[in-house]
Each structure stands twice: as structure tokens, then as C-alpha cells.
Design a protein around this nucleic acid. Structure first.
Length: 805
RNA sequence: GCCGGAGUGGCGGAAUUGGCAGACGCGCGGGACUUAAAAUCCCGUGGGAGCGAUCUCGUGCCGGUUCGAUCCCGGUCUCCGGCACCA
């Protein structure tokens, strides 16, 4: 018989489904294991070969856990709200809900075709009202706890999507999704106070097992810095508070800079002699796009405030005040003390505007030529009165204490993280369950009215005026105030796509619950997610957002753990044959359907795991896929030709035991490529040595997490199906003593160069090994007439003989 | 600029508490089977020298430590990713 994957694969998929072999059991006595993958966005293009890489990896991990006796939860769902579906719906005049349904059906077909051990009964869809009811419920809890607020501020506006973007969605000044320029637009937006959790989002990383680069990226994004807030007096008598990380350089502050949006500027209008210049500059700064404003190559610009100055509180000197867009209104206090001698940006500005540059930290080059910014022990304070002679590190606490005693400053921590802009002016998202009443202000919808359904509209087109399509639905918008019963208006913006994905892993624990997002028992049993694998691109988006929501849910007693995910790993991208990203426009997209048709799902699964280091990017190769198919053919042929004995073949036994351990360790360490290589080596050896049914039994069991269909078929073919499915068997027993051969081969070096290989009994002592090495003719050739000075023996590996003439 | 990661055959990649560099796979060369091709099987496959046994060079580059370095240390170059006027 031939290996007929096209018949085998659907056969076993059906049998697994009927027997519900992958169903997770609530509250089982077995230890639980919750393995999670990032649920896909069901795009119209269907599954991409990038998907099977992380999916197969976690499928292998969870299958192995089942074989180790765990009660496994390995769920799947769809993150189905989002712009591509909405845009497709607009273009083709189909309701997004219909498009979503079709796409989910196609994704489901493809995922089932690949034989993943998902518990399909727990499948979730973020666009299902029974699901987004709870997304809305969480929003209401955030609102009730003061963590959701509406404010008018300049926000990132994507000119193409016609929609507001979160800080995290803007990459190098353009829209993360479509690449169009992002401009700043003044808009009233719902915000989530993620900044209230900044410190905990950093601190709690210490307690979880995330790969280091994820932790580093999150810490950098949150951007904690320590320093001091210092109050300067203006000549008008007003206080100007600045934030600095270098209070030690206070004596070197020779001017101040306010951001163009700073509130004091308006207040000073009567005193300012160049008011027109000031307002012109403010206007210019406000009109700049993000890209222009953050361009580091451009010259520093600014305007000196004519008529108002500040007093440096440490030395009483009067210093000028400027406004400039290199100071951001949204960080710190929106005002800085400028120390041009010890800050590159201030130095550049000072040179252009002719400000004084005073050295207060010695140890660098001439500060008139470049700023000296070192913060280590190389710098010693000078020109700084009582700080003179101290290092930077020692001076900071001294000056901070001094500021506190004088009541003009205090230690301060700041974060780069900003609050999360949560409104989107689009149709295909969760309605925000809030109502505006002219009398009562913003009112939350009563929880009993959830879900607030997304209404049917005539057109989903986004509008140029920045209003959501929902705003045109007058009968939906007009409502009554939940507080006073008077006329009121609904919020017409929707939630961002990141809302539904911020808590979906909780819904999997109890997906059909109508009373709560999940029952306390289910949450208690399954939390936290034991292992979550996903893309690095979500590190400062989904991963950060969902940690924030989870911490909030913990605080209000809904979930039992501080952190949602115990372990986080990440996979590399799969690139097209030229090493470029796969994309429709490049025409290098590989469709999993084609590979499955040509070679079968097991080959595809094996290939995406064998392709290279799981964490690194990998280049797709049609040719290399064939190698995996050949391997499965060899396994098939081996099964057909094996002997009937149920015992291990003597010659194969050590190799089988080594492989059992190697594959188990490699799965745990996500080194799937070397796990497969080990099985290939074993199969090659078994082909050489001949093999028994007993050998095959272990091989098939080890292979089953990787290539589950062929494993089931061979299991049945060899007559093991009476013991149940192979995917329900225990992992083969490993016996270290069986891996030890009676004789071992060792390399012999003379002066560090390999000259020979000797075979010695495994239990030979050092003297015997050295004697055997010296007896080797090749070794004698290189050591003849020389004196043995030293011998190094590394047991089981090599002997090094050091000789001298 | 700051913070990460990576440089190993024709290619994807193995091997690090410092111990035989190139596992496994692809590709390629030769052979078997075939009328032929595909598939399959066998042999070979880092560079250089030699008929050969062998010798020699070799993990981006330069140095160091060591009996021994892809691995550790110092320096340097290149590529990739993230952040970026965050005071």
C-alpha cells in the first residue's frame, strides 16, 4: 500500500471529532495545562502559511502535554472585528457580518484540514453579541472605576483609514496598518488610563516567564525614568514646574523651554511683547504632522518669550524662556530647564539661539564644542556650589534632598507610556455603551441593557468629518438618559480591534456563560494561561493591553491571578522565496491549501517546524517541503516492512531511548527542527538495522504530535488501535541506562590537533585511555621522539596529549 | 542616537557550564533500476594540495585568555528588529 495522505487525513479528523479526543475537561483531577495561540483575524484571503508555524508549534506542545497526563485546554477563536472586513464590505456592498461569517467558515475548514487538536466547542467570535456583551461590560467596569474618561486632545489621525489611532498603532509617523501619513487632530476621545498601571506592568514582569526580548521591549515602551520636579519662579510671579532626570546639573540651567501648547503662555499674553511671533509659532507647531514634528534631522526651531523670564532657584540668576516644539506637552510637565553643556538637544538649540553654555560636570571635552552627557563616575561636578567635587551619581540625592528641604522640588518618576486612545470612528467594532445627556453628562448604560447591539446601517463608509458612520443613525443615536429619563444621545464611536482580544483567553475557560464573562470556578481552575505563543509585533499592543485589562479585572476581583500569561514565547516570520515578506503584491504568497493538496497536512506541519530556528525568520522553500514528504514515506515503508516482535531491536534500542529524551526536551525548548532531525536520524538507522513492531510503536508515538494523521493510520495498521488513539497514549518510557553503549569512541589530540580516533570500553579509566591513545600509530607518528608533558582526558569525548621535543 | 538580536558550506540550518565544526534536510555530482522520464535506492559532497594514505586552511574581521575557542574577554565591521527631540 502507498501512503495515501488524501484519504488518511480526513478519515482521522472525522474520528477525532466524533470521539471528542481534544475536549478540555472542566475541573478534572488531572493537572491542567492551558496552551494558547493568538487567535487569527479571519481575512478574506484565508489562512497564510505564516499561521501554521505558531499553530503547529503549540499543537505539538499541547499534544505532548496530553501524552504526559495533563488535562489540556487548547482553544481557538476569531478576532473578527476590524477594518479589512469593513473595507471589503464597503467595496462589495455586503454587510460586514456576512463577510465575517464566510471568512470564519473558510478559516475553520482550513484549520481543521491541518489537524489541530483544538477544542472546537469553545470557539469564540469577538463579533458575536454574546461575546461583545462582556467586552462592553468590562468597559463599563473601567468607567465605573475611573479608568475610562472622555477628553479632547490632539490625537493621531490616519488620513486613509479616516480614524483615530492609538500611540501604539503609529509606527515612524505612519499608520501601522495601511502606511498612510498620520496627522494630529483635535478630537474628543474615550481614553483608558493604562498609565495608572505603568509601574505594575513593569514590576510584575519579574514574576512571569516571558522571553527576555519581550520583557525588554515592554519595559522600554513604558519608559520609566527617575528624576525630579523643580519649580522655577517666572518674573511674573508664576510657578513653572519642570521635570528633569539630571537635577545634578541645575546650576548649568541657562534657559528654559516650554512646549508650544503650555498653558502659561496664554496667561502671559499681557506681558509678552512679541505675542504675534508666539502665536504664529504655536500655529505652525500645531499644524505639523507627527512625521514632521519628530524628524530628528530638522533644525531646532523656537521663539524667545520677550517680556517674561525665569529665575534659576539654585543661584538666583535670571534666565530666558523659549517655546519650542522639541519639548513635548504630553511628557513630564511640558516644560524643561535647559542645560546645554550636558544635553545634546539643549546644546543644539543653544548654539542656534546663542544661549549661554555653562559647564557644571567636568571630565568631558570642551562643552562649547559638544555636550558632555556621561552619567557615570567620569563626571565630577563643578561651578555648582555645594555640589562641587561630587560625582553625578552622588550629586543627585544631595540636590534632591536640598530641593525638598527648600520646598522647591522633589523626586519624581515619569513614564513614556500614554493613556490608551480607545475610540474609533468606524462601524465594524463594539459600540461603546455610553450615553450623553445634556443635564447629567456621560452616563453608562445599565448592565441589564447589554449587549448594546451594533445597529444595521445603510452605509458603513467612514466620513471625512471624523464622525463614525453610526452618527447618521438618528433613531439609534436618539435615546433616553439612564439617569434622568430625558432625551440623550448615544456614543457613536466604536472600540478598537484590541478590545475583544484583550480578554478572549478568559472566555475560552467558560465560553457559553450568560451570567458572567466566565464563572469564578472556571477562572480559578484554568488561570493563568500556562504558555502563550505569539508574534513580536504584538509586544507593545495586544500583549500590553491585555496585561492591563487583566490587572484591572484582578483588582475588581473578577480574575484570580495578577498576570494573564505565565509564559510567553515568540515565533519568527515565514518569508517568501526571495527572503521578502509574503504579500499579494509581490505574488510570493504560499497558500496552505495547495501544499496540503500536493503533499498532505502532515508534511506541511512537519516542514514549517523543520524550516529552521522557531524564533528566527525563515525562508519558504518548495523544494525543502519534499524532504519532509520523503521522510514520511520512509516511515510508512518502514512500518510496512517491520518484524512482528514487540520488543525493541537490540541495535535500535540505544537510539530509540536517546530519541525519546531528545524529542521531549526539544519540544519543551521549542527546538522543533532538531527534534525532527533526531527522528530522521532514528529512521535512517532503523532502515539500516531493520526494525520491529516494538521499535515502530515508540517511533509512531513520538511522531504523533508532529504528524498526527499518519501516526494514527500506522498505529491502526500495526494493530495497536485496541489501545485507543495514538494521540491518547502516554509518551514512551525513557531509560537512560539503555542509551549507554559498551564501547565508546574518543578523539585523540596531539598538541590540540585531532590526529586519531580510538575505541575504548565505556568503563575504561584515565590511564587505560591514555595508554590506548599512545598506542595508536597515528598518534605515535606525531609524538615520536617527544616528551609527554601533560595529558587531558575529557571522559567520553577526547584525549589531548601535550608533547615537547 | 539608544535598546535588543544575528553573522558558520551552494542553500535552510546543527553543534556552546570551552572538547572530533558542518548533525538533519535541500541542492548538486556519480551510479543502479527504466525503452525513456519521474519516483525510488546506493555512493560522494566546506576550500586548497596530492594518484593516494594523508597534509593544510576554515565559524564576519583584528587581537587576548587556554592544552584546546563557533562558544569566554577586548576591539571592530556588516545586517535585521524595536524605540526615538520622553528632558
Amino acid at each position: 500500500m502507498k501512503y495515501d495522505f488524501a484519504a488518511i487525513e480526513p478519515k482521522w479528523q472525522k474520528k477525532w471529532e466524533e470521539a471528542k479526543v481534544y475536549a478540555a475537561e472542566d475541573g478534572s483531577d488531572k493537572p491542567k495545562f492551558y496552551g494558547l495561540i493568538e487567535f487569527p483575524y479571519p481575512s478574506g484571503q484565508g489562512l497564510h502559511v505564516g499561521h501554521p508555524r505558531p499553530f503547529t508549534a503549540m499543537d505539538i506542545v499541547t499534544r505532548k502535554k496530553r501524552m504526559d497526563g495533563y488535562n489540556v485546554l487548547f482553544p481557538i477563536g476569531f478576532d473578527a472585528f476590524g477594518l479589512p472586513t469593513e473595507n471589503y464590505a464597503i467595496k462589495n456592498h455586503i454587510h460586514p457580518a456576512i463577510v465575517t461569517k464566510q471568512n470564519i467558515a473558510n478559516f475553520t475548514r482550513q484549520l481543521k484540514m491541518l489537524g489541530y487538536g483544538f477544542d472546537w466547542d469553545r470557539c469564540v467570535d469577538t463579533t458575536d453579541p454574546n461575546y461583545y456583551k462582556w467586552t462592553q461590560w468590562i468597559f463599563l467596569q473601567l468607567y465605573k472605576n475611573g479608568l475610562a474618561y472622555k477628553t479632547t486632545m490632539p490625537v493621531n489621525w490616519c488620513t486613509s483609514c479616516k480614524c483615530v489611532l492609538a500611540n501604539e498603532e503609529v509606527v515612524e509617523g505612519v499608520c501601522e496598518r495601511c502606511g498612510s501619513p498620520v496627522i494630529r487632530k483635535e478630537k474628543s476621545q474615550w481614553m483608558l488610563k493604562i498609565t495608572a498601571y505603568a509601574q505594575r506592568l513593569i514590576d510584575d514582569l519579574d514574576d512571569v516567564d516571558f522571553i527576555e526580548r519581550v520583557k525588554i521591549q515592554q519595559r522600554n515602551w513604558i519608559g520609566r525614568s527617575t528624576g525630579a520636579e523643580v519649580t522655577f519662579k517666572a518674573t511674573t510671579g508664576d510657578d513653572i514646574v519642570v521635570y528633569t532626570t539630571r537635577p545634578d546639573t541645575l546650576f548649568g540651567a541657562t534657559y528654559m523651554v516650554l512646549s508650544p501648547e503650555h498653558a502659561l503662555i496664554k496667561q502671559w499674553q499681557p506681558q509678552l511683547k512679541n505675542w504675534d511671533d508666539v502665536t504664529a509659532y504655536q500655529k505652525m507647531a500645531a499644524s505639523k504632522s507627527d512625521l514632521e514634528r519628530t524628524d530628528l534631522n530638522k533644525d531646532k526651531t523656537g521663539v524667545k518669550l520677550d517680556g517674561v523670564a525665569a529665575i534659576n532657584p539654585v543661584n538666583g540668576r535670571e534666565i530666558p524662556i523659549f517655546i519650542s516644539d522639541y519639548v513635548l506637552s504630553s511628557y513630564g510637565t511640558g516644560a524643561i530647564m535647559a542645560v546645554p553643556a550636558h544635553d545634546d538637544r539643549d546644546w543644539e538649540f543653544a548654539k542656534k539661539f546663542g544661549c549661554e553654555i555653562t559647564e557644571v560636570v567636568s571630565g568631558g571635552e570642551d562643552v562649547q564644542k559638544a555636550a558632555f552627557t556621561a552619567k557615570d563616575e567620569t563626571g565630577i561636578l563643578v561651578n555648582s556650589s555645594f555640589l562641587d567635587g561630587l560625582t553625578v551619581k552622588d550629586a543627585i540625592p544631595v540636590i534632591t534632598k536640598w530641593l525638598e528641604e527648600k520646598g522647591i522640588g522633589h523626586a519624581q518618576v515619569n513614564y513614556k507610556l500614554r493613556d490608551w486612545v480607545f475610540s474609533r470612528q468606524r462601524y465594524w467594532g463594539e459600540p461603546i455603551p455610553m450615553v450623553w445627556c445634556d443635564k447629567c453628562g456621560w452616563q453608562p448604560l445599565p448592565e441589564s441593557e447589554l449587549p448594546l447591539l451594533l445597529p444595521e446601517v445603510e452605509s458603513y463608509e467612514p466620513t471625512d468629518d471624523g464622525e463614525s458612520p453610526l452618527s447618521k443613525m438618528t433613531d439609534w443615536v436618539q435615546t433616553t438618559c439612564p439617569c434622568c429619563g430625558g432625551p440623550a444621545r448615544r456614543e457613536t464611536d466604536t472600540m478598537p480591534q484590541w478590545a475583544g482580544s484583550s480578554w478572549y483567553f478568559l472566555r475560552y475557560m467558560d465560553p457559553h456563560n450568560n451570567e458572567a464573562l466566565a464563572s469564578p470556578e472556571a477562572l480559578q481552575y484554568w488561570s493563568p494561561v500556562d504558555w502563550y505563543n505569539g508574534g513580536m509585533e504584538h509586544t507593545t499592543l495586544h500583549l500590553l493591553y491585555s496585561r492591563f485589562w487583566h490587572k484591572f479585572l484582578y483588582d475588581i476581583g473578577v480574575v484570580p491571578t495578577k498576570e494573564p500569561y505565565q509564559k510567553r514565547t515568540s515565533h519568527g516570520m515565514i518569508l517568501g522565496e526571495g527572503g521578502e515578506k509574503m504579500s499579494k503584491s509581490r505574488g510570493n504568497v504560499v497558500n496552505p491549501d495547495d501544499i496540503v493538496t500536493a503533499y498532505g497536512a502532515d508534511t506541511l506541519r512537519l516542514y514549517v517546524m523543520f524550516i529552521g530556528d522557531f524564533e528566527q525568520a525563515a525562508i519558504w522553500s518548495d523544494n525543502a517541503v519534499k524532504g519532509c514528504k520523503r521522510f514520511l514515506d520512509k516511515v510508512w515503508n518502514l512500518a510496512e516492512s517491520c518484524s512482528d516482535s514487540l520488543a525493541y531491536t537490540k541495535a535500535n534500542e540505544p537510539g530509540i531511548h536517546k530519541c525519546i529524551k531528545k524529542v521531549a526536551d526539544d519540544i519543551e525548548g521549542m527546538k522543533f527542527n532538531t527534534a525532527i532531525a533526531a527522528m530522521m536520524t532514528l529512521v535512517n538507522d532503523m532502515t539500516q538495522n531493520g526494525c520491529s513492531k516494538g521499535d515502530m510503536k515508540s517511533l509512531i508515538t513520538m511522531l504523533s504530535p508532529f504528524a498526527p494523521h499518519i501516526a494514527e493510520e500506522l498505529w491502526e495498521m500495526l494493530g495497536f488501535s485496541g489501545e485507543g488513539f495514538v494521540c491518547q497514549q502516554r509518551w514512551p518510557e525513557y531509560d537512560a541506562s539503555k542509551t549507554v553503549a559498551s564501547e565508546i569512541s574518543m578523539a585523540v589530540q596531539v598538541n590540540g590537533k585531532v590526529r586519531a580516533t580510538i575505541t575504548v570500553p565505556a568503563d575504561a579509566d584515565q590511564a587505560a585511555i591514555v595508554a590506548a591513545a599512545q598506542a595508536d600509530p597515528k598518534v605515535q607518528k606525531f609524538s615520536a621522539g617527544m616528551q609527554l608533558v601533560k595529558t587531558i582526558v575529557v571522559p567520553g569525548r577526547l584525549v589531548n596529549l601535550i608533547v615537547k621535543p
